[in-house]
Simulated assay, not measured.
Amino acid sequence: MSVRLPSVRHPHSFYDVFGVVAAAVAIMALVLAVRYGSIVRLETAVFMTVVFLWAGWATERILGESKERATRHQQRNRPWK
């Protein structure tokens, strides 16, 4: 069984999205545990905003690809052909 790392540029599944978001939350928790200041909190807020915007984009891309695959599969398997 092969395991691949989550893809940031071309997410294929919701596990990619979950993996990236979970890693970002863990990194931010570690940063906030070590350093805590107003600038660090601002950077954390900006970084997490970017991560959640990426998660929305990735989810939209995955659903779009899934819809295209379903349409192609449906056109290939027409019962009257």
Score class of each variant (00 low, 15 high):
Ser7His: 05
Asp16Gln: 01
Ser66Ile: 00
Arg72Ile: 01
Gly37Val: 03
Met48Val: 05
Ile62Gly: 08
Leu42Thr: 13
His10Asn: 13
Thr59Leu: 05
Gly56Ser: 08
Ala58Phe: 02
Arg72Thr: 00
Thr44Phe: 10
Val3Ser: 09
Val21Asn: 02
Pro11Glu: 04
Thr49Asp: 00
Asp16Gly: 04
Glu60Arg: 15
Gly37Met: 03
Val34Trp: 11
His10Lys: 11
Leu30His: 10
Met1Gln: 04
Ala58Lys: 02
His10Ser: 12
Asp16Arg: 05
His10Phe: 06
Val21Gln: 06
Arg9Met: 05
Val50Ser: 10
Tyr15Ala: 10
Ile39Asn: 12
Glu60Leu: 15
His73Gln: 13
Gly19Asp: 00
Glu43Asn: 15
Ala23Ile: 00
Arg35Ala: 13
Arg76Val: 02
Ala33Trp: 10
Leu5Met: 08
Leu42Arg: 14
Met1Lys: 07
Phe18Gly: 06
Pro6Met: 05
Pro11Gln: 04
Arg9Leu: 13
Ala55Asn: 04
His12Val: 00
Ala22Leu: 10
Phe47Ile: 04
Ile39Pro: 00
Ala24Phe: 01
Val50Arg: 10
Arg78Val: 12
Asn77Trp: 06
Arg72Met: 07
Pro79Arg: 14
Arg72Trp: 01
Pro6Ala: 03
Arg9His: 07
Ile39Asp: 13
Ala24Ile: 01
Glu60Asn: 15
Met48Lys: 03
Arg69Leu: 15
Arg69Asp: 15
Thr49Ala: 08
Lys81Tyr: 06
Trp80Tyr: 13
Val40Lys: 04
Val34His: 04
Phe14Lys: 00
Trp80Ala: 11
Val25Pro: 00
Thr49Arg: 01
Val20Glu: 03
Ala29Met: 12
Pro79His: 13
Gly64Met: 08
Leu30Phe: 14
Tyr15Leu: 12
Met48Ser: 02
Leu30Pro: 02
Val31Lys: 09
Val40Phe: 07
His73Arg: 15
His10Ala: 08
Arg4Ala: 05
Ala24Lys: 07
Glu60Asp: 13
Val46Glu: 08
Val34Cys: 07
Val17Gly: 02
Val3His: 06
Gln75Leu: 15
Ser66Ala: 11
Val46Ala: 11
Phe14Ile: 01
Arg35Thr: 11
Trp57Ala: 12
Trp80Cys: 05
Arg35His: 11
Asp16Leu: 03
Ala58Glu: 01
Ala70Phe: 10
Glu68Ala: 15
Ala24Asn: 03
Val3Met: 09
Thr44Gly: 15
Val51Gln: 04
Ala58Gln: 02
Val51Ser: 09
Leu63Ala: 13
Leu63Asp: 07
Ala22Gln: 10
Val31Glu: 07
Tyr36His: 12
Phe14Pro: 02
His73Cys: 12
Gly19Asn: 03
Ala33Pro: 00
Lys67Gln: 12
Val20Met: 05
Arg76Ser: 10
Ala45Leu: 11
Val31Trp: 01
Ala45Val: 06
Gln75Pro: 00
Arg4Asp: 04
Leu5Val: 04
His12Leu: 06
Gly56Ala: 06
His12Glu: 09
Leu42Val: 04
Val46Trp: 09
Gly37Ala: 12
Leu5Ala: 14
His10Gln: 09
Ile39Glu: 13
Glu60Thr: 14
Ala58Asp: 01
Ala24Met: 09
Met28Glu: 13
Leu32Ser: 07
Thr59Arg: 04
Val25His: 05
Trp80Lys: 10
